[in-house]
Amino acid sequence: MIAGAYALASVLVFVTAALLILVGAIGVIALKNPVHSALSLIMTLFGVAIAFVAQSADFLAAVQIIVYAGAIVVLFLFVIMFLGVDRKEHVHVEPLVGQRAFAAVGSAITVGGLVVLMARSHWVTGAMSVSTKGATLATGQANVKQLGTAVFTTYLFAFEATAALLVIAVVGAVVLARRERSVDDEEVEVDA
């Protein structure tokens, strides 16, 4: 009987998480106001965190909230507020010619690639899903230990490469931002 209650509970948790993720994701693209879109994105992130907890990946769930909801979306909002783009966008403007067609092709390739990866490949996690293998992740401290071991042994190269990439991105952003300063006025003169 208790097992049945757990099964029902896990179904409920999954449905809640899935609803949060989907409604949030649709909201991100459907809502007019960029701040509302960002809020909707937070909802999606919470849904993903719930799904992580349901898979016993507590650490990932916490990090999901801390890093994505707690820092990255805050930065999104910071930019939205700072630049004052909290008004309706003119969707008919195409700054780059043919960008819609490129976007369509790009998203088709991404979605197709993801579907193929999920259907056929095992190389990221070593399993199609955590639950089908029967072996759940250890919770709590062991959770961190497993992740740490994986990151610093099996995936060490990918990990360090990502770190280098992020540093390059930060340095690049600083360099570009410094060059852009007070250049706007000059450019207007040149164009005019």
Partner: peptide
């Protein structure tokens, strides 16, 4: 199990 990390998440 995520304990103190939840505090960081909530302050976020």
């Amino acid at each position: 199990p995520m304990g103190i990390l939840l505090m960081l998440a909530m302050s976020g």
